[in-house]
Design a protein around this nucleic acid. Structure first.
Length: 560
RNA sequence: GGGCGUGUGGCCUAGUCAGGACAGGGCGUCAGCCUCCUAAGCUGAAUGUCGGGGGUUCAAAUCCCCCCACGCCCGCCA
């Protein structure tokens, strides 16, 4: 299990020594915080079984393993009472910094593992709003981190192009469309049509019949209806792509749900599913998942013979399972039940199943968002507002820059603010959208981290050429270098735990440490070995910040 | 009614899965810092029943039970 970076190598080495000492596979090795590089409370656990005091065990461990820990992990070990602390030796930080100054710090060698990550997949019935882009940003950050760890990633958008909501949109275009407004994006236009059609639906029951007929016709493949669905959905997706491109989010493939009807996959699924014992047919077709802990019938086909979303979703995942080693879906919390049912059914079929990252909802101060009711803050509107604010900020700070540069910086700053604001919160937390937070460019914001990076760039530019040196002395230098050394492990944590917010926290801490460092330890004014060491450290930090920002989908701008 | 998730100073949030050494940050408030590498910065101060109550443990924000509040889900919708 050889890994390529210094921090992890030493960490893993200590872990294996702890395993040897305890005879256990699961051992405790934590980050040592301010008092050590690593620490363990293993003594408490071991002492219990051996009728020793934790203190005795800790002391015994240190006595027996100190030499091995020194020679293999390059660390000294001490028992601080029952706590065991590990301090990495003086070769550690120079070795780690030598890695950090190289381009691509944190990346791992290419592997053949094929991963498909599905994210966003919003229904094409209106523009992406701040809830949808939580999905996009979590998904896109995962994509970037997976690619950094060498995985072959394909990013997919699953297009729900045959649902009731699209039928409503098509109905609206047939009867209620008044055309796009000047400069209106197609997705925003579709939202207006969708809202109007929903209003008609509420007022006139006969509209329901027409919508139902549209849905049946599209499943049967009636050419004219299929064409109208495709056209509406396609136009909405064009709008989405503009929005996502602006947010630095991209997909490799848009997979249309209706494909799984047209290509026969859904029919083949029904053929297979008949053979599992949980299959039920009583007019409708459904799966009995009570043994898996689901009370409700998991319906796959209506009694009128048409398939429901769940069936097409199963067909989609079976197709993904055939083509990829690992599947990751980023879905809203409203999909928890359907996601669990999907997984349960795939298991019954003996297929690979996806790992699902669920995120809780973003609501507005006045309540939950609704495309149908027209109650949402669109991603486009958000980016417009934040970009304007960013432009004002840049203009007031940097009147020396030309218009074009200020526009470019404002764009990067705005996207940084939005992406960071969203990705920093752990996905299981539901949030209320707050304009004040979105427009804040101070600490714990994307721009704050960009700023630290720009400062580092500025220092290096002024410094000119220098030779690397690795003599770190001050507390700020040491703290900063230790943090730099952890970066590759953070990327791995994000990928292993599917938690992009860990990277957001890391990048912010790195910026904090860097700010403290250059405030107290002058770089350009220092001389000799100290100056060269500090410049090397600044280079390592700049590189690490740049890599971290890149993985967060934020531009690492050199000036701002 | 059942399931899932969340509840951490006035507000937002990390830490909870793998229990341990003073619960980290930020916003806001107050007091300071631009003859000094970009003040989107830095320093200091005040502010906490970690929703409530039981329990397990040498040790609980973290594990178990009960309760409360909020969000989401429970369709032959997607």
């Amino acid at each position: 299990m050889k890994r390529s970076y210094e921090y992890q190598r030493r960490h893993d080495c200590i872990v294996s020594i702890l395993r040897e000492a305890t005879g256990k596979r699961e051992v405790i090795l934590n980050d040592g915080g301010s008092h050590a590089d690593f620490a363990t409370t293993q003594a408490f656990v071991e002492a219990k079984g051996l009728k020793q005091s934790p203190l005795q065990w800790a002391t015994g461990f240190v006595k027996q393993y100190a030499d091995q820990i020194a020679s293999q992990a390059g660390a000294t070990v001490e028992a601080k009472g029952p706590y065991i602390n590990f301090h990495l030796d003086e070769t550690y930080l120079p070795a780690a910094l030598a890695e950090a100054v190289k381009a691509g710090y944190g990346t791992l060698p290419k592997s053949d593992e094929r991963v498909v990550i599905e994210h966003t997949s919003a229904n094409p019935n209106g523009p992406l709003h701040v809830g949808h882009i939580r999905n996009s940003i979590i998904g896109d950050t995962l994509v970037r981190c997976f690619r950094t760890t060498g995985k072959k990633v394909e990013v997919q958008y699953y297009v729900n192009d045959m649902g009731r909501q699209i039928a409503i949109v098509v109905y609206g275009f047939d009867h209620l469309d008044t055309g796009a407004l000047p400069d209106e994006k197609p997705d925003h236009h579709i939202a207006r049509v969708y809202i109007a059609a929903n209003r008609a639906l509420e007022q006139d029951p006969s509209v329901v019949d027409e919508v139902n007929q549209l849905m049946q016709k599209v499943e049967l493949g009636v050419p004219d209806v299929v064409r109208r669905f495709r056209s509406a959905v396609g136009r909405c997706l064009e709008g989405f792509e503009v929005t996502m491109h602006r947010l630095s989010v991209s997909h490799d493939r848009f997979v249309w749900e209706s494909e799984f009807i047209r290509n026969g996959d859904t029919d083949r699924l029904f053929g297979r599913i008949k053979r599992i014992p949980e299959y039920r047919e009583d007019g409708k077709v459904w799966i009995d998942l009570t043994a898996e802990g689901f009370e409700k019938e998991y319906v796959l086909r209506r009694s009128d013979g048409t398939s429901v979303y769940a069936a097409r979703d199963l067909a989609y995942h079976i197709w993904k399972a055939r083509n990829f080693d690992r599947m990751i879906d980023v879905l809203g919390a409203d999909h928890k039940l359907i996601g669990a049912q999907l997984i349960a059914t795939l298991r019954l079929l003996g297929e690979k199943f996806p790992e699902i990252v669920h995120f809780e909802f973003v609501s507005l101060p006045e309540g939950s968002m609704s495309t149908r009711a027209g109650k949402f803050v669109s991603a486009d509107e958000l980016m417009d507002e934040v970009t304007m604010k960013a432009y004002d900020e840049v203009t007031s700070r940097r009147s020396d820059l030309d218009e074009d540069s200020r526009r470019r910086i404002a764009h990067s700053v705005a996207i940084a603010a939005i992406r960071y604001d969203i990705v920093k919160v752990s996905p299981e937390k539901s949030t209320v959208f707050d304009w004040k937070e979105a427009l804040n460019f101070e600490r714990q914001s994307g721009p704050y981290i960009q700023y630290a990076h720009a400062r580092a760039c500025s220092i290096l530019e002024k410094a000119g050429d220098f030779d690397f040196a690795f003599e770190l002395k001050t507390p700020h230098e040491l703290l900063l270098a230790r943090h730099v050394a952890r970066f590759p492990a953070v990327i791995e944590d994000v990928v292993n735990e599917l938690k992009p917010h860990l990277l957001a926290a890391y990048a912010r801490e790195l910026a904090d440490h860097f700010n403290a460092f250059y405030h107290f330890d002058p770089v350009l004014q220092s001389e000799g070995m100290s100056r060269r060491s500090r410049l090397t450290l600044v280079l390592a930090v700049r590189n690490t910040l740049s890599e971290a920002l890149g993985n967060l989908g934020i531009d690492a701008i050199r000036t701002m």
